[in-house]
Design a protein around this nucleic acid. Structure first.
Ligand SMILES: [Zn+2]
Ligand SMILES: [Zn+2]
Length: 329
DNA sequence: GTCGTCGGACCATCAAGAAG
DNA sequence: TTCTTGATGGTCCGACGACT
């Protein structure tokens, strides 16, 4: 994804409580204030194709949009000075024959597996069309230490999120809450975000263990070992994205206990990657829970699931494509 | 137009090094 | 033992010039 961090509201810089105007026709109590450090469930859609940043360099709409938790993705802000990237179609990989004939090799032209090869037949050099001698690779050359760069992808590397920690164990690479620059919350991806999106933050499902050094947090508090205060998500019926302020007649409601959201359907913005494992995990986890399509009820509960992507490297086959060589008219 | 030459991008292979 | 990295040796694209 992108290394640029998002500017939309779901960051720690945002006020922890919703400060906007009360939504019309709100039912079910006041919008619950978010615990300190928790971002609101607001996000923006990605900029439309060809949309230019405004004078502030922002491609966000003038109003926030609400997605139900479990499908909440913000999108990373495009760098203001970034020129519009031209659409690039990756060139198909060029196939090579295992061994070109001596004539083709000398002329640096495309050969094929046939003997005589196509080119030699065409130019009447079939009698001299034969394989050359391949040199043997040198052995025993010292190479020095390698840089490891293709580690198995984690949720974090794939989606820019940090998996929740086990109790009593700090996740690798995550500073404790009292450390400078520590994230106030952990990020949990419910579903793979669409291209160009990153998941919104959720509170960790487990307690913060005491900091390794026993020091208080940056805000002076001590980790109690208790789970952090949960975010009480709120929802509106319908299909995401929801405009905010919501249109007149919108009814807010809290999710009944045990209600979980379905993964995005094909009509929703989501990548197709890694969905099966997540779905399975979600189903296993919430077997007893009632599943409600958000399009029907717009309910969701923040459940924890990750996905992993692994970069396989298996390209050992070799088939020739018998492409006619030669200049055309 | 065809054909030969050639620089260099691209590709497949595989030994060395790293990890499990 | 298996996987990953990266150097190596190779193919062949595409530009160019000579020639017909
Ligand atoms: Zn050939
Ligand atoms: Zn040949």
């Amino acid at each position: 994804m992108t290394t640029e961090q998002p500017k939309p509201p779901s960051t720690t810089e945002q006020p922890a409580t919703y400060a906007g105007p009360p939504p019309p026709h709100f039912i079910g109590g006041a919008i619950p204030p978010l615990p300190p450090g928790y971002p609101p469930f607001f996000t923006y859609p990605p900029p439309a194709e060809g949309q230019q940043p405004d004078s502030n360099g922002s491609t966000a709409p003038p109003y926030p949009l609400m997605y139900p938790p479990g499908m909440v993705y913000a999108f990373p802000q495009a760098p203001p000075a970034a020129p519009p990237a031209p659409p690039t179609t990756p060139r198909p990989k060029r196939k090579q024959v295992k061994m070109a004939c001596t004539n083709c090799a000398a002329a640096s032209k495309r050969c094929d597996e046939n003997r005589p090869c196509n080119r030699c037949q065409k130019y009447g050099t079939a009698d001299s069309c034969m394989d050359g001698q391949r040199k043997e690779r040198k052995k025993g050359i010292k190479r020095g230490p390698y840089k490891r760069k293709n580690k198995p992808q984690t949720v974090e590397s794939a989606y820019g999120v940090i998996p929740p920690p086990e109790v009593g164990e700090w996740p690798q690479g995550v500073p404790p809450p009292n450390a400078a620059g520590a994230p106030p919350i952990y990020a949990v991806a419910q579903f793979p975000p669409p291209e160009g999106y990153y998941p919104v933050f959720y509170p960790p499902p487990t307690a913060y263990p005491p900091p390794p050094d026993g020091q208080p947090n940056a805000d002076g508090s001590q980790n109690s070992g208790q789970p952090p205060p949960p975010i009480m998500p709120f929802y509106i019926p319908g299909f995401p994205p929801f405009p905010y302020p919501p249109p007149p007649g919108t009814v807010f409601q809290f999710p009944p206990p045990g209600i979980v959201a379905h993964p995005p359907t094909a009509s929703q913005p989501a990548t197709g990657a890694a969905e099966s494992e997540q779905e399975q995990q979600a189903e296993e986890k919430d077997e007893e829970a009632t599943c409600v399509n958000p399009a029907d009820l717009s309910d969701a509960a923040a459940t924890d699931s990750h996905s992993k992507a692994h970069d396989g490297d298996a390209n050992k086959t070799d088939e020739d494509e018998n492409v006619e060589d030669g200049s055309q008219a």
